[in-house]
Design a protein around this nucleic acid. Sequence first.
RNA 1: GAGGCUGUAGCUCAGUCGGUAGAGCAACGGACUUUUAAUCCGUAGGUCAUGGGUUCGAGUCCCAUCAGCCUCACCA
Length: 521
Amino acid sequence: MEAARREKLRKISELGVDPWGSRFDGHQRIGDIRARENEIKVVPATDGDPAHAEQTGPKVRAAGRIVLRRPSGKVHWLQIRDWSGTVQVMIGKAQVGDERFALAQCFDLGDIVGIDGELRRTRTGEITIFAEKLTFLSKSLATPPEKHKGLADPELRQRMRYLDLIHTDGVLDRFLRRTKIVQSIRNTLGARGFVEVEGPTLHAIAGGAAARPFITHHNALDIDLYLRIALELHLKRLLVGGVERVYELGRVYRNEGFDARHNPEFTMLEVYQAYGNYETMMDLTEAAIVEAIAAMNRGPLSEGHRGDSTAPQPSLILPWGDKQIDFTPPFARKTYDELFTEHTGLAADDVEGIRKLAEQLEFNAAGKHPDVVKSFVFEEKVEDALVGPIFVTDYPASICPLTKRKTTNPAVAERFELFIHGMEVANAYTELNDPDLQEALFTKQLDGLPEEESMAKMDHDFIRALRHGMPPAGGLGIGIDRLVMLLTNSQSIRDVILFPLLRPETDVTGEGGKAKPEEAE
RNA sequence: GAGGCUGUAGCUCAGUCGGUAGAGCAACGGACUUUUAAUCCGUAGGUCAUGGGUUCGAGUCCCAUCAGCCUCACCA
């Protein structure tokens, strides 16, 4: 397979052309070139016969990958693609000269070329660059996937994301949208006076969430360290340090299973605002999401991309599979207990009734705190039923060891979670800033929960920071990958992570195994 | 970690009852200066995921292993 392409590589060199190309300045995005079709003018023929009419059009320069090729004698038709679109190219032997036409005969699907020419229409009306000059930019030695169906095998699509980006409709677009969502969130926060910081990813204590961490080792200090599972505790130290509006948007790592909604490393946003509370964070969450939707559908990268992207939709109603999500603010707001009763028919303080229901659901409730039992039932019976977007507010305090209690009712924590189609997208608190209470909560393990599964991991340095005084504050966490899933109608988290975790290939060089895309040199 | 489904040419996929391995695209040679999934003639391409087993004979049946997907478990 590859031998023929290597033979062409040799021929290209013999023509005095570098098959690996070099700097190529001044080209325009293909999407922009296509937008210049209104500059194409028809010049009527002198004999008045419309068939003899000629055209003049703008001189353009494009660079892209050859995705279709139709050689037809002394004329070759190409389709070249860049990240803004696809355009047809006509290469005529008489127009480019014998030597350059010989170069065109060495083109393969997948090669990257530069084209200078005039933008006109063909007889059938197709916008086409009529080539005047060809520049070879890079050879592709490997055979690309089937040219119309592209890659279908989900394993190959993830392992060879580069091919997926080129050949699967909508993939590049989706990842560009992800970038715009993230940029928009940074803009939303920046416009409100928040500063972005970078905390450590190697932690001596993996705190701030209930999750099993990855363990690594530092040789010089000879100590084990954990990859961070949350951003929370260092950002709160910055609140103590007077950084009044602060956020971090970065990767966290959890050593757990992976499926359509979980990847072991994922992107988390955490925001802290001094002198705010969880209601401040609710407003911020709505604003960030609404602005992200607008940003995602705007701007040069996705607009006109491949000529098939849908027109910008001002609507806040987005598709989700065969359903829809209505992001029109304000989002619904209901308390934990209200929803609990609504979906289970049990009073929120009916400890025995809840315990019975939990055991019907095969939960071992013996010896567990009533709020832990209730939390299990809530996850089983309520969360999946939440279509949303809905803010669930006022959680039982005993399952929220980092959250301030309501002054009117210390059994209730000032916390909300945002649910959309059963997915938890955001989680926010009024932050606990009482060092004595925080220390007590870290010390007292939740009934029936091993430390590994609890958020309450003692962090003495964090307690020391709180003793110096942390302003009352609102804090917010948003799972960026899940938000991107919901905004881009992606049912799997692997569709919004460029390189999700896969088992390593045992043999990439070609012998055995399913994924053997390239022959070893 | 448990169960189910899947793995055949570079890619997308057929392969019936166990009896010599198939197609389209891609590739190679040839024809063609307005094609649009170009067309036409011809050629070549395989460790049937891997390893065992049953059988006169296995892509097909059985077992194990590897990988992917789905469901469950785990999972603020």
